[in-house]
């Protein structure tokens, strides 16, 4: 028995190795080699641009930071309710505005509902541009144009949401059943009626789910817009950091943490209700 067992296993191993041809094996090794050297190259690039003295100091700095954050200055919290309200306003109105723009965009971008190939490319371009640029960058641009304030934040959130909602929604539209759409067209319905009866009811649950999910993300994003002057709790955060008032920073963090948890809970509940 002990003699046969290893014999058997080598046979199995031989059979397995045949799955990879030598040529493929070499390619796989080459890919790994290339990947690892690329990673090391990147690492060197970063390491060259780093002051390692600071890094060695990091644990002490971290401990120092935490000691200054504790205890949080609880009395500061009552000044934060208005900024928090602003943050939620930015997220909510921004999401509403964003989905209002994303909705037609998605119908123009979906292969089965677009009126023309060129319009489809344009709509896809809008979606990709909106997705590529972070809401904080949009906020930076808008603050230089509209001046600091909530409005810039709302529009920044809206512009970023177009891409997210638009992409997921147009994918949902492309996945609908075609026969009900055909049936509505066969009754002599106009194009818009085909959309509202044949397509819309099919994508409505997806649309609601995507929108509420984006709202949840937007709550998180809008907490930092204040760093570039676009309103919300980020303004207070920025002020507290600039004055090195870390005990205020920690209370802001606690508030953000709680708000995001609540919004995540609401979003999960609502999404479950729609499925």
């Amino acid at each position: 028995m002990p003699v046969r067992y290893p014999d058997h296993s080598t046979n199995l191993a031989d059979a397995r190795w045949k799955l990879h041809t030598t040529r493929k094996q070499i390619l796989i090794w080459l890919a790994w080699l290339l990947g690892i050297s690329l990673f090391l190259l990147c690492w060197k690039q970063i390491s060259d641009n780093t002051m390692w003295v600071f890094v060695e100091d990091a644990p002490r700095q971290g401990a120092d930071l935490i000691s200054r954050m504790l205890p949080p200055e609880w009395s500061y919290a009552h000044l934060l309710w208005k900024p928090l309200w602003d943050t939620i306003t930015i997220a909510t109105l921004g999401t509403l505005l964003g989905i209002a723009m994303a909705f037609p965009c998605a119908f123009l971008a979906a292969r089965n509902t677009t009126p023309h190939g060129l319009i489809r490319s344009a709509a896809l371009m809008v979606i990709v541009s909106s997705r590529s640029i972070n809401s904080l960058i949009w906020a930076m641009l808008l603050v230089t144009i509209l001046g600091p304030g909530i409005l810039a934040g709302i529009i920044a959130i809206a512009l970023r949401s177009i891409g997210f909602v638009g992409k997921l929604l147009y994918e949902a539209i492309e996945e609908i059943h075609p026969t009900p759409v055909e049936a509505i067209a066969a009754t002599g319905a106009s194009r818009m009626q085909v959309m509202s009866y044949g397509v819309l009811p099919q994508v409505m649950p997806a649309f609601a789910g995507i929108s509420i999910y984006r709202w949840d993300i937007n709550i998180r994003e809008s907490t930092v817009l204040g760093l570039v002057g676009a309103g919300g709790i980020g303004l207070q955060l920025n002020a507290a950091i600039n004055t090195l008032a870390w005990d205020k920073v920690s209370i802001i963090f606690i508030l953000i943490f709680a708000t995001v948890l609540v919004s995540e809970y609401i979003s999960a509940k609502v999404r479950k209700a729609f499925i």
């Binding site: 641009n49 780093t50 600071f54 890094v55 930071l65």
Partner: peptide, 13 residues
């Protein structure tokens, strides 16, 4: 990022 910048200094690290 704000926290890590305070800890590790400015830069890509």
């Amino acid at each position: 990022a704000i926290l890590f910048v305070v800890m590790f200094g400015f830069g890509p690290l």
